[in-house]
Computed example of a mutant assay.
Amino acid sequence: MQQTHVEELFEWIDEAATAIEYQENTTYLESVADALDVLYHHAPFDDMADLLKQQLEKHLKDIDLNKFEKEEIRKATQLAILKGMKGATQQQHLITPDTVAMFMGYLTQRLFKDAQEIRIFDPACGTANLLTAVLNQLDKQVAAYGSDVDETLMKLALANANLQKTEIEFFHQDSLRPFLLEPVDFVLADLPVGYYPDDVQAGEYNLKAEEGYSYAHHLFIEQSLRYTKQGGYLMFVIPNFLFESDQATQLNAFLREHAHIVGMLQLPEALFKEEKHAKSILVLQKKGKGTEAPKEALLAKLPSFKNHNAMADILAQINQWFEKNHSS
C-alpha cells in the first residue's frame, strides 16, 4: 500500500524527534517542537551535538517540504503531538479531535459566509491544532491570534503555524490576564476545564466564585466576551455539565446579559471515554447595537461522524437553519 503524505511526514518528524530526545535528553513532546523547527529552517540548531547534527542533516535530505499541503502538515504534526501527549498526564495536554475541529471550521464558514475578512482569536490555543484546522477551511482574509500559558505547547504552536506558512500572532501568557489586543470578530476555543488558582486575578471577573476557587472555563467565557466586538461571535467546546454545575446560575445570568445563544450542538458520546467527559459546541453572539437572538436557537445532538447518512441529514438541517436565521 502506498504511503500517504501524512504518514511520510509523520515518520520524518517522529524519527527526528526520537533522535533529538535520545541525544538531548528532553521529553518526546519538546523534541517534536525542535524537530519541527529543524524542518522549518532546514538545518539543525547551532548548539546541537555534532553527531545529532549529522543525523538530522542526513535526515533533511530525505524530505521536500514543498510537496505537502497545509492540511497534510497539520495532520502529521498532530499525530506526532498526540504520540507525545500519551506520555503526558496533564489535563491541558489534550488535543481537540480532528472531526470536531473540522465541524467547527464548517460552522465558522457559515457564520462568516459573507465576510471578506475576519479577525480570529483562540485564547486557549494549545498547539494551535484547532485554530489552524479552522483557518485552513476559510477562503477569506484572516488575521489570527492565539494564546497559551504552557511553554511547550506554545513552541509547538509556533512551529506548527510556521510549517503551514500560516501567520498567527501568539501571546505566551496566562490568558485570563489582560491582552494587548483589539476586540476581534470571532473567538474560538476548546475551553480548559477546571479551577483557576489565581484568586487575585479571578477577582477581576464578574464570574468569580462567591467562595473558593473560580472555574477557569467560566472565566474564559467572560474574558472571551471582553475581546469580542459587539455583534461578534464566539464558539466554544464546553463540557456538557457547564449549565448544571454549582456556579451555573451565575453563568446563566451573565450570558443572558451579555450574549445571545445562537446554538448548542452536542458532540457524539462515542468521541469521549466516559459520559461525564462528554462535550458540546456552544455558539454565542455578543450583544450589540441591532443584534437580536435568533428566532430559534440551533439545537442538535450530532450523530457519529462515521455515520455519513445521518451526518448528511444533520448538515442539511443546519444549512436550512442558517438560511432562515442567519445573515452574516
Rank of each mutant, 00 (worst) to 15 (best):
D313H: 14
P197R: 15
L207E: 04
D122K: 14
A35K: 01
M102H: 13
Y106A: 00
L29S: 01
L265V: 04
V100A: 11
F241E: 13
A161C: 12
E257C: 02
I281Q: 10
L82E: 14
F220D: 00
A278Q: 14
D198M: 11
K208Q: 15
E8G: 11
M1T: 09
D64M: 05
K75P: 04
V193E: 02
A33T: 05
V100E: 02
A278R: 15
K229V: 09
E274H: 14
L111Y: 08
G87P: 00
W321V: 08
N307H: 12
K286Y: 10
D98N: 13
E8L: 14
H59Y: 03
N206R: 14
W12N: 12
L51Q: 01
L130R: 05
T26S: 13
I13E: 01
A300D: 11
F68E: 00
F103K: 11
M104E: 07
A49F: 15
A259F: 02
D150E: 14
Y227W: 13
E323H: 09
G84D: 07
G84M: 04
H42M: 13
I73W: 12
R110S: 06
T249G: 02
L153Q: 09
I168W: 09
V193A: 02
T77A: 15
L271Y: 13
L163A: 08
Q201W: 02
A157G: 03
G84W: 08
V187A: 05
T152N: 07
P303I: 15
S31C: 00
L315W: 10
G146P: 05
G194Q: 12
T166R: 10
K295G: 03
K208T: 10
H260N: 05
I118E: 09
I63Q: 11
G105I: 02
A189G: 06
I261G: 03
H172F: 03
E169L: 10
M85D: 05
D198G: 11
L315P: 01
I73F: 02
L219K: 11
Q266F: 11
H5N: 15
E211H: 15
S147Q: 13
I221M: 14
E275H: 13
V38I: 08
K86N: 11
K165M: 10
G194V: 05
T132H: 03
I281D: 00
E11W: 12
L138V: 07
F112W: 01
A17H: 03
V100T: 06
Y22K: 07
K53M: 11
R226P: 00
Y213I: 02
G194H: 13
N206G: 04
A33F: 08
N25A: 11
N136K: 12
H42K: 15
I314V: 14
E7D: 03
L163W: 02
M48Q: 06
L131F: 09
K140L: 14
G263Q: 08
H5S: 10
A128D: 01
E151P: 00
I318L: 12
A270P: 01
T249A: 11
M48V: 06
R119S: 08
A33P: 07
I118N: 04
Q201Y: 03
K295T: 09
D198R: 13
F179W: 06
Y205T: 12
P178S: 00
A259P: 08
F170A: 07
Q141M: 01
A300S: 06
E72Q: 13
H218S: 12
I63Y: 01
F68N: 03
N252M: 05
M154G: 06
Q247F: 10
V142G: 08
A297K: 15
K83D: 00
E72K: 12
S31I: 10
L163Y: 03
L9S: 13
